[in-house]
Structures are given as structure tokens and as C-alpha cells.
Computed example of a mutant assay.
Amino acid sequence: MKLQLRGVAARHPAARPDAAPALQPLDLDIAAGEQVAVIGASGAGKTSLLQLLALAMRPSAGTLQLDGVDPWALPRAELQRLRGRLFLAPQVPPLPPRQRVVTAVLAGRLPAMGLAASLRSLFYPSDIPAAHAALERFDLADKLFERVDRLSGGERQRIGLARALLAPARLWLVDEPLSALDPTRARQAMATLVQGAAERGVTLVATLHQVDMALAHFPRIVGLREGKLMFDLPAAEVTRERLERLYAQHEDELDGRAPPAPEPAPAAPAPVVMHCR
């Protein structure tokens, strides 16, 4: 799916009137099948950009086109069909706690199913081998019939990503997919996601806090800071100097360090005890 943004800005509906826009006007073109990582410190506007692309939030200015179509000019039924061609993986997957993993993964196919088939799939999973294959790529095949509430946060996050492999989408929008994963699992999940997108020829846009992962797995990097587009470059041209400017005053996020712990308060002097005799 081809994406084109011209002067697109965003303001959250619940934001205060005097609050800065979540996204300042920006231009962006992403070709069909391209893979792009969006980086920046917390509050940079990364999630807002994904919500715009997922048609979950309407631009406050500018125009957005998907495959040459302005989605907000479409009738409601056509807009819903277009949304069915998009896959959004939030940072915390919305998985019902008592649901079985097989059902949660096969839910990726719901946009292509009718109402009756969707309801039936909740009780009688329709393609267990496909769910098993998707989970196997994320090293979760042994969790196929587990309940979601018995899994770790990292396992639930990978289940949310496995849904993408079954979704009928032409655009994958993935928000902070590695936040609950250890380094080894993060590398495996990122490689699987990128490879899966390439195999299907879908467009992939992912927001990442892990700069090293973005540079290692994505050929193109978009940098956001305080809602502004700071750079849009091939990964090989993203220098340390550019990153330091992007993360100025947020160096802990750039280097993956935890913020420094506050210094302990000086100990109070021991009380003087006097004895009268």
C-alpha cells in the first residue's frame, strides 16, 4: 500500500486548547512494500503518526492518501472496507484474558470474514494449522491452546505480532513491538516481522525505541521530535550526530540506559543524648 502525506498535522481530540499539536505539519511518502522505522524520544508523535495511518485519528490539517485515495472523503462503508486492509498492532495487544491463544491469533483474519464466520471462529477455530505456523515463527507454537492470561507480557506481545502473519492487510502498523521483550527475543521478533512483511509484499511502518534495532533491520529511518519531522533518511546516513540532536535531553532513551537514580538524601545527624545525674 502506498502512503502519501502532505502537510498532515494532528491534534488529539481531548487535548487542551493551548496544548502543542501531537504532530506538526509534515510531508511523507512511503512506497508500496517499503519498510520504515519511526524513532524519537517519548512524546515525539510516533504513536500519533501510526494512528493517523491506521485511520483511527483524522488529520487536523493537510491531506492523507492511501493508494491514491483520501480515506476521509469516502462513504462510511468504503472507509470501513479500507480499514480492513490495515493492520495495527498496539504496544499492548488487546487480548481478552480468558481467550485461547489459537483464537487470539486467528482473530487477525476477522476483517476478511463475515459476521457469522467471525462469531463461529470464537468457539470453533477454523484453521488451527495456520495459527500454529504463525506462532512457530515467533517461537510460541507450544502455547497454541494456552489461555492468554497465563502468558507473560512478552509472550502476549509476540502473539499480537503473530496476528499480522494471518491478517489480510496491505499495511502493517506496529507500535513499539519490542517493549516487553528481552534482547534475544527482540531480535528474533523483529527479524520475523520484517521477513514476513517482505514475503507478503506489504508496507511496514514500525515505531521503535530501540535505535540499534531500527538501524539493523530497516533500510529507511524517520526521526520525530516534539511532533516535528527531523529527518527521513536511509539507515546508513543516520549518524550519531543526528541521533544526538534527535534525542537531545533524552540521552537515556538513545543509549537504552535507565534514567539515573536520584542521589540519596544525606543522612540526618545522630541525635545527641544527654543524661542528667
Results as ranks from 00 to 15, higher is better:
Ser48Arg: 11
Ala31Thr: 07
Pro75Trp: 03
Ala77Met: 03
Ser60Thr: 14
Gln24Gly: 02
Gly40Ile: 08
Asp29Ile: 01
Ala37Met: 04
Ala20Cys: 03
Gly62Arg: 10
Leu53Glu: 09
Ser60Trp: 01
Pro71Gly: 01
Leu26Gly: 10
Pro59Ala: 02
Ala77Asp: 15
Val69Pro: 00
Glu78Ser: 13
Leu64Cys: 05
Arg16Glu: 14
Ala44Asn: 12
Gly33Asp: 04
Gly33Glu: 06
Arg16Phe: 01
Leu52Cys: 06
Leu64Gly: 00
Ala22Leu: 09
Gly45Glu: 10
Val69Trp: 02
Pro13Leu: 06
Glu34Ser: 08
Gln24Ile: 00
Arg16Tyr: 00
Arg16Cys: 00
Gln35Ser: 13
Ala32Trp: 02
Ala73Trp: 01
Ile30Gly: 03
Pro17Glu: 09
Glu78Tyr: 01
Ser48Met: 08
Ala22Pro: 13
Ser48Asn: 12
Gln65Arg: 15
Ala37Glu: 04
Thr63Asp: 14
Val38Cys: 12
Gly62Trp: 08
Trp72Ser: 04
Pro25Ala: 08
Ala41Arg: 14
Pro21Met: 05
Asp67Val: 03
Gly62Gln: 09
Asp67Phe: 03
Gly40Asn: 11
Asp27Phe: 12
Leu28Asp: 05
Val38Glu: 07
Leu52Asp: 07
Pro17Cys: 00
Ala56Thr: 03
Leu66Ser: 07
Ser42Thr: 15
Gln51Trp: 03
Ala41Met: 11
Gly43Tyr: 14
Asp18Lys: 03
Gly45Tyr: 09
Ala41Cys: 10
Gln35Arg: 15
Ser60Glu: 09
Leu74His: 05
Pro21Thr: 06
Ala20Lys: 09
Ala19Met: 06
Pro75Leu: 05
Pro13Asp: 13
Ala54Ile: 10
Leu28Arg: 05
Ile39Tyr: 02
Val69His: 06
Ala32His: 09
Leu64Glu: 03
Ala22Lys: 12
Ala31Asp: 14
Gln24Phe: 13
Ala73Asp: 05
Pro21Phe: 06
Leu49Pro: 14
Leu23Trp: 10
Leu53Phe: 07
Leu28Glu: 03
Ser42Leu: 07
Ser42His: 10
Gly45His: 10
Leu52Pro: 11
Ile39Arg: 08
Ala56Asp: 15
Leu53Cys: 05
Ala73Met: 01
Leu26Ser: 11
Gly43Leu: 13
Leu49Ala: 10
Asp18Phe: 03
Ala20Ile: 04
Leu50Lys: 08
Lys46Pro: 07
Ala19Leu: 06
Ile30Asn: 04
Leu49Gly: 13
Asp27Ala: 11
Ala56Leu: 14
Ala77Ile: 02
Ala41His: 15
Gly33Trp: 01
Ala32Glu: 13
Leu55Phe: 09
Leu28Ile: 01
Ala77Pro: 06
Gln51Ile: 00
Leu74Trp: 07
Gln24Ala: 15
Leu55Ser: 08
Pro21Gly: 07
Pro75Ser: 06
Ser60Pro: 02
Leu66Phe: 01
Trp72Tyr: 11
Gln35Asn: 00
Ile30Tyr: 05
Arg58Trp: 00
Leu53Gly: 08
Ala20Met: 09
Asp29Thr: 14
Arg16Leu: 13
Leu50Trp: 13
Asp27Trp: 10
Ser42Ala: 15
Arg58Leu: 06
Ala77Val: 10
Leu26Gln: 13
